[in-house]
Design a protein around this nucleic acid. Sequence first.
DNA 1: TTGACATATTCCTATATAGGAATATAATTT
DNA 2: AAATTATATTCCTATATAGGAATATGTCAA
Lengths: 122, 122
Amino acid sequence: MARAATTSDVFNAIAEPQRRRILTVLKDREQTVGAISEGLGLAQPATSKHLKVLKEVGLVDVDTRGRHRFYRLDARGLREVHEWTGGFERFWGEAFDRLESYAQELQRKERRDGTTRDDIRP
Amino acid sequence: MARAATTSDVFNAIAEPQRRRILTVLKDREQTVGAISEGLGLAQPATSKHLKVLKEVGLVDVDTRGRHRFYRLDARGLREVHEWTGGFERFWGEAFDRLESYAQELQRKERRDGTTRDDIRP
DNA sequence: TTGACATATTCCTATATAGGAATATAATTT
DNA sequence: AAATTATATTCCTATATAGGAATATGTCAA
């Protein structure tokens, strides 16, 4: 049941490295499928498929002009990911690194004191 | 070849909703497998498997004490995701929304002027 | 040692999907 | 209309899992 449920949300869309590359390339300007696939060294069908996924989750828009299809970035959906990860920001700051050792020290101390009741959750 | 290559990087690890829930729960405190699985309503084997993935990408650490295994958040790996998405921040700000319509106006104008050479990339 | 408890692993199955090859579709040019 | 160009889709295959069931492993307690 590989990656069930939310099988196509933004988190999944950007889990694929090639799709991240595509989004990065689209920062500069809107691009045709051909330009993207050539620029990134991807096969055209593969590129089209990735773009389809990105479109489905709303990370890109298409603008058809003649036989070209210009894909344009719509990065608003990435905000969710940015904010979710941002919720962990305090855990990777320098301040935390210093606090961590101290906190762990405390935890070890408490445990030595026999604070088992609150330590083991279930 | 589902999700080839980087089959287990941080982006993939957090693509799974249950794993995101686990990480969120670990913000509060380190937790045993039992506490996590009970708290989130996950089966124990499923929980263990998710924790294994999170461990492999370095998002959690384990501390074995007796027959309990306390999993502890190590969110530093999320920084990469936060920064990558942060590179798109200017595309979802209010300022951008206002600029966007103007920029598109310009693009359309250029195209009308016959700027085809630089417009179509390949 | 035996039993209870906590967690990990194995086996199985269903499904998702990345990518290649071939083909379909659509618009443009000649 | 026929050929060309740009892109999408289909068909196929290999692989990656998510999750359930059963079992193995490890640790503590009696």
